[in-house]
């Protein structure tokens, strides 16, 4: 039971890393990506191949997975962002990109096609995933509060005005995309070394959609919001396992309910913080005393 719970937590954390990455892109520049599973897959395969075939050190492989994803992020981002594709066109471009990567993985020699890579060393443990999550959250937070993060918000709110203020639209968008791709790649690397078997069909557009749903439901413009949403989305199907097939219905209902009752997402553009939690608790207490 304990290993089952720690397994779910590890799983959630891996997806949190990918979702936080996507939040930096979609949440802060306003461009939707429907192909983020591709970055996840690229990271998983790069890291997996390195440890499986070449006995590379796990951490090195993980970093390489992130780096490779970032590189591919530049490759896909350069033409699409340079052309200033608007949101829906960009989303379709990423959709195509996601599928293209999956097909590529199915047909390459080194990825062993649809057979996948069985027996990748299981290096990802709960502490490893937790450690990486903390680092990613910390870097994401710093990014958002940096000059680039603020510029990204300005771009999301009104890109013409942002350009008039002297913001380099292309640079800001590409930077967030690359950061988000790196996060996706690292998450993929952790995933590969957690489940120790990967195959292309694990990285379909379903995964991309799930990540995007987490970001939207968690709140565009928040980092902790999507993180919380991811955990909820992973935990709920597990908690409801007793309800067998009905759990997927519950999952769908939850998504609809969030969008209807909180269209701005669980946290909106706010962040979860210790100070905020404290304030909320004291407010509750004060209200309680008031009533008492």
């Amino acid at each position: 039971m304990l290993s089952y719970i720690s397994g779910i937590i590890t799983f959630s954390l891996i997806y949190v890393i990918a979702a936080v990455g996507l939040a930096i892109f979609t949440g802060f520049t306003g461009l939707f990506s429907l192909g983020h599973a591709a970055f996840f897959a690229i990271g998983a395969y790069t890291a997996g191949i390195l440890t499986y075939f070449y006995d590379v050190n796990f951490w090195l492989a993980l970093a390489s997975g992130g780096a490779m994803s970032g590189l591919v992020g530049i490759l896909i981002g350069y033409p699409t962002l340079k052309a200033k594709l608007r949101s829906d066109y960009f989303a379709i471009a990423t959709l195509g990109f996601g599928e293209a990567v999956r097909v590529l993985l199915e047909n390459l020699e080194i990825t062993q096609g649809a057979r996948g890579l069985p027996g990748i060393p299981a290096e990802t443990t709960l502490p490893v995933a937790a450690g990486v999550t903390v680092i990613v959250l910390w870097v994401a937070r710093n990014f958002v509060h940096s000059r680039y993060g603020r510029a990204a918000v300005a771009v999301r709110e009104d890109f013409v005005a942002a350009e008039m203020m002297g913001i380099n639209l292309f640079q800001v968008r590409l930077l967030s995309l690359v950061f988000s791709a790196i996060c996706g790649g690292v998450a993929g690397g952790l995933f590969a070394h957690y489940v120790s078997f990967i195959q292309p069909s694990m990285f379909t557009s379903y995964l991309s959609t799930q990540l995007t749903a987490s970001v939207v439901a968690g709140g565009m413009g928040s980092i902790t919001g999507p993180a919380v949403a991811t955990v909820i989305f992973i935990a709920i199907p597990e908690v409801l396992r007793v309800a067998s097939m009905w759990r997927l219905v519950a999952y769908g209902l939850l998504l609809v309910a969030i969008m209807v009752f909180r269209p701005q997402g669980l946290l909106g553009f706010r962040e979860l913080s210790w100070a905020g939690v404290k304030r909320w608790l004291t407010l509750g207490k004060a209200a309680g005393q008031g009533r008492g």
């Binding site: 709110e157 009104d158 002297g166």
Partner: peptide, 23 residues
């Protein structure tokens, strides 16, 4: 030819319909 470079050279456009950040 890039807006941010033009601004750096000292030319600023106040666009039609103002485009302030409302929030």
């Amino acid at each position: 030819r890039q807006a941010y470079e033009v601004l750096a050279r000292g030319i600023c456009l106040v666009p039609e319909r103002r485009r302030l950040y409302a929030n």
